[in-house]
Simulated scan of single mutants.
Amino acid sequence: MEADRSMMEMKIAATAGLTRVTFEPGGVVFTLDAGEFITLQLDPSLAPSVEINIWPNGISVWLPYPGESDYIVLDSGNDELARLW
């Protein structure tokens, strides 16, 4: 999939060991090994409303209320994994 230039990309990476990445409020989960990453593609105007919480072995990404926009999750090869809302 070619990146949409009107969208911004946020890289979310696992730095040490198995990491669970959860997109809320929908509860969509991805598991990454150390060194792996996924990319969240979203409208740049919504970026200030995204909340990211990090703890050992986990990352939660709180997105603005569903219906505000589409959020696209890409793998490290830039292929679409999921489309949220």
Rank of each mutant, 00 (worst) to 15 (best):
S69W: 04
D79E: 12
A13W: 03
M1W: 03
L32E: 00
W85G: 08
R5H: 10
L18N: 05
V50H: 06
V73H: 01
T22E: 09
S6Y: 13
T31L: 08
S69H: 12
N53V: 11
I72S: 01
S6M: 08
L46P: 01
N78Q: 13
V29Q: 14
A14F: 03
E2T: 08
A47H: 14
S49E: 15
T31M: 07
A16K: 13
N53L: 07
A82M: 08
D70E: 14
Y71C: 02
N78W: 02
M1S: 11
M8W: 02
E80R: 08
R5Q: 11
D33F: 11
L46S: 04
D70F: 13
T15Y: 05
V50F: 05
T15E: 11
L81A: 06
S69N: 11
M1N: 09
S45Q: 14
E68D: 10
D75A: 04
S60N: 11
S69A: 15
A13V: 08
D4T: 04
I38D: 01
V61G: 01
T19E: 02
L18S: 15
R83W: 04
F37R: 03
F30H: 07
V28R: 03
W55M: 14
A47K: 15
Q41C: 12
E51D: 13
V61W: 00
E80W: 00
V28M: 05
D33E: 15
L63K: 00
N57W: 07
L18K: 14
T39H: 07
W62K: 13
P48M: 06
G35T: 10
I59D: 02
I59S: 03
G17S: 07
S49Q: 15
P25C: 10
F30K: 01
E2C: 03
L42H: 02
L40C: 06
E24C: 10
V61D: 01
R20A: 10
Y65S: 10
G17H: 05
E2H: 05
Y71R: 02
G26A: 12
M10S: 07
G35P: 06
P44W: 09
G58S: 13
P56E: 14
A14V: 05
L81K: 13
P25D: 05
E36R: 06
A3L: 14
S69R: 04
S69F: 04
L18M: 08
M8K: 09
A14C: 12
S76K: 11
M10Q: 11
P48S: 13
D79A: 09
E24S: 07
V73N: 00
I38Y: 00
Y71Q: 01
N78K: 09
R83G: 03
